[in-house]
Amino acid sequence: MTDTTISRPTATVRTEPYRSRGLLHDTWVIARRGLTHLVRQPEQLTDATIQPVMFVLLFAYVFGGAIAVPGGGEYREFLMGGIFAQTVVFTAFGVALSLATDRKNQAIDRFRSLPIARGAVLGGHALTNLLKSMLPIVLMSLCGLAIGWRVHSSIADAILGYALLLGFSFAMIWVGILLGSVIATPEGVTGTGFVVLFPLTFMASTFVPTRTMPGLLRVVAEWNPVTTLSDAARILFGNPNTPVVPEDPWSIQHPIAYSVIWIVAIIVISAPLAVRAYEKSLAK
């Protein structure tokens, strides 16, 4: 490209601008960009591909032999519900990271100078990440099948199980938007997200039954939605789970209902907060 000749640009002025095509159209255009980014930066996908598969294999083979499932059953089958739940919670990372990155490189500003529907930028990020969150669930299911995990329930229950996981993903997307709006840099997002979310997924029935945990920790774990999401997935997939006893708290007795309540609560509380934090992060 040494000698380029540029023909006369058509800078004709339109008297009437284009008519708005609405929020869904704009959201989809921005989501498509996000999906293209995912495909073009496979190294950014490790949290959705290699990481969950790695957790499945590590826990199944390293810890598997040492951990007994109360009530019997294969640890590998017990494990899958937990790792599904953990991965779904980590959905927040991806959306926080992509939002912080877009803000840092001023792509958000670029979108804001365009005549797009209010909410389309966040909507696009949310949609991209919801679609992205299906990837690890599919990969883990395949990995689980390879190491001996099976769905023992009905098809309807299994569908309900996957729907519950996706619902929780969607809730965590708003937590991610909140995180990505409050924290200034992509590096900060990774650090803070790790400190906040990682322990949350371990103080739960994710990898071990809560019954062996000491006093206070056990109470935290029993009311932790990661516990009930793990348990709900185990129940809906027909996998081994710690048998419920009458002394167990309400959350453990009704893990599906309790998880749904959390999904609704997270969305109702964090979505408005996230939108406000996002708009505040732009007001400069």
Binding site: V29, R40, N105, Q106, I116
Partner: peptide, 27 residues
């Protein structure tokens, strides 16, 4: 608007950038 940087998306092709902008300008 041509901002100092970030007017176009480095991960998209030139064509994809212009098509996306056209769509966001509601074409």
């Amino acid at each position: 608007l041509a901002a100092q940087d970030a007017t176009v998306d480095p991960l998209l092709t030139g064509r994809e950038n212009l098509v996306m902008l056209g769509e966001l300008y509601q074409m």
